[in-house]
Design a protein around this nucleic acid. Structure first.
Lengths: 212, 212
DNA sequence: CCTGCTATTGACAGTTAGACAACTATCGCT
DNA sequence: AGCGATAGTTGTCTAACTGTCAATAGCAGG
């Protein structure tokens, strides 16, 4: 980054550690989103937060750890849009409703989500991979709950892996929608719904049979 | 990196520019694969290639450009496993055969592919994104050819975006197979085949209708 | 007002990328 | 053999970045 058109910096000093931590993370997240991770130095972040560079290391140790915490903060945002169990609803209904909730959530947190998933496998950091992996697993777990696949997954762990594959498709499709505008929300919905139902109804019986 | 257990370095000098370029890229690719991008310095690469540091900049300008060229080289590897047009074959047959060729190719170039896709969206570099995007588009173009969707795509460009979504699933699923061993090759095949056929037969009619 | 605690700073050390200049080695040509 | 042209080397210099640590400044409670 060349120059940071300095925002109206808080100009305050001596915050409580938790507040300071949070404020720094917020600034870092914004800068990463705006300029890309590689183009933002610790100096930039410190300036944006109105603090000295040394304080970054005091709070986060190394840059890598700061980076990890930013990603963690981003990924932890989604507070689960409640599966909503309605007695008379079919699996297809529940899938449709859950998908809708997910898409709604993403359309609200557009830039955060794009940054967090774009950051992704930046190469070499085990723990970072694990953080993103965990977020993905949470999404898959929700899918399992919604589709009522719980018992089947216990016997066939590969179903879990397949749903992780599906979540790759969900991410890619959502990028096409939110980032490039090459799909509409409705189209994403139809695509993901049909695909997920196919996986449940057609693929899983075949593929699990193959394994044994 | 502390010390690079020096490979049996070519020890030669005065190569043709093209050869030298290629040799440097090869070394960089190997180091990136082995130690991760962030852990390899220009000095490491120069040492591994048996040349001076300055020559790196002579050939590639900046580190970022070297990095881009490494990724470009990785992505350009797949020499298209020939679609093979057999007259009597159905779409499903052609999809199955093409998928099989793709999986075979990947199982052979396992580590290269994992590195290339893992490197992926490292954040912030437009041109790098474009390179990866282009590789993905090539895969999608092959899928369109195999499935005979050419005419439909001309009228409905969103089909293209959907197939890009599918390619996200293909990547994620393949990672589950090649990297984590949580799926077998057969399972990946069944999953991708069914999903792709569903998209072609069920989703595309629905979704394109929605658009108009 | 003083005193202890701690958030915060500022300067320092080590490393790296990138630019540049001067020099050397090797090839192709006459 | 001699002579350019060009690939490659070495070394240095600058700017920027990260991580560390002793010193400082702001805010409690007595």
């Amino acid at each position: 980054m060349a120059d940071t058109a300095s925002s109206p910096g808080p100009e305050t000093s001596r915050l409580e550690p938790d507040e300071r931590r949070d404020q720094i993370l917020q600034c870092a997240q914004r800068l990463f989103s705006e300029h890309g991770v590689g183009a933002v130095s610790n100096t930039d972040i410190a300036r944006a937060a109105g603090i000295s560079r040394g304080l970054l290391n005091h709070y986060f140790g190394s840059r890598r750890e700061l980076y990890r915490d930013v990603v963690r903060r981003m990924m932890d945002v989604p507070p689960v849009p409640v599966p909503e169990y309605v007695p008379g609803a079919s699996v297809a209904d529940r899938v449709a409703q859950s998908l809708d909730g997910w898409l709604e959530l993403l359309s609200r947190n557009r830039s955060i989500w794009l940054t967090a998933t774009g950051i992704a496998g930046c190469g070499g950091d085990e723990e970072l991979e694990a953080i993103i992996d965990r977020a993905r697993d949470r999404a898959v777990a929700r899918a399992i709950e919604v589709t009522g696949l719980g018992p089947a997954v216990r016997d066939h762990p590969e179903i879990h892996a397949m749903l992780r594959g599906f979540s790759g498709m969900a991410e890619a499709t959502t990028r096409e929608w939110l980032r490039h505008g090459r799909l509409t929300r409705k189209q994403v919905h139809v695509l993901l719904e049909s695909t997920l139902l196919t996986i449940i109804n057609d693929v899983i019986p075949d593929a699990t049979a193959v394994c044994e």
